[in-house]
Simulated scan of single mutants.
Amino acid sequence: MSKLLVKADKGHGHVAHVTPQSAGWTYVGFDLHRLRPGETAAGKTGEREVCLVFVTGKGKAAAGGKDLGLLGERMSPFEGKPWSVYVPQGSDWAVT
């Protein structure tokens, strides 16, 4: 069993990165992006699928060339369920 404890970097932008290898897991990794209003995080899925999870806040999302509009509604992780977007293999994604 993994005893992974990761603390996000302070500030904004790409603040945490965990791979299956670094966590001792088989499949799942994650990245944490902390964005200021107007900032964008973007990437390509490559051979893996991706789930974008809005932990807090709202953002405009696009995946696979499709504009998904404004998503998210909770302003704290304790205010209900998070919003998420599934992005299949071979796709690009962006959140602003």
Rank of each mutant, 00 (worst) to 15 (best):
K81W: 12
Y86H: 14
D31I: 09
A23W: 06
Q89H: 15
R36V: 00
A61Y: 11
L71D: 03
W93T: 09
K7A: 05
S91W: 01
P82N: 13
G59C: 11
V28M: 03
G80M: 10
W83F: 02
L35I: 01
G64A: 11
D67R: 09
A94P: 01
Q21S: 09
S91D: 02
H17T: 02
F54V: 08
A94G: 04
H33R: 00
P37D: 06
G72N: 08
L5G: 12
S91T: 14
T40K: 05
K81F: 13
S84K: 10
A41S: 02
A62I: 07
V55Y: 00
K60N: 15
F78R: 05
K10E: 12
G43D: 11
H17E: 09
K66P: 07
A62C: 09
H14I: 05
K60M: 13
Y86G: 12
S76P: 13
K10L: 10
G59F: 05
S22E: 02
W25G: 10
L35P: 02
V6Q: 09
G46D: 09
V18R: 08
P82G: 14
V55P: 00
P77K: 11
V95K: 11
L70K: 10
A41V: 04
V95Y: 08
S22A: 05
Y27F: 14
A61W: 12
G11E: 01
G59T: 12
H12K: 11
V15F: 01
E79C: 04
R36H: 10
G13D: 04
K81I: 09
H17R: 06
P37A: 01
V53F: 13
W83N: 14
A16Q: 11
S76R: 13
A8I: 06
K58V: 11
V28W: 08
G43P: 00
E39L: 05
E39N: 02
T56M: 06
T19F: 12
K81R: 13
G64T: 06
T19V: 01
F30S: 03
G69M: 14
V18D: 00
F54R: 02
T45K: 06
P88L: 15
G38Y: 01
P82A: 08
R34E: 09
G43F: 00
V28L: 13
K66I: 03
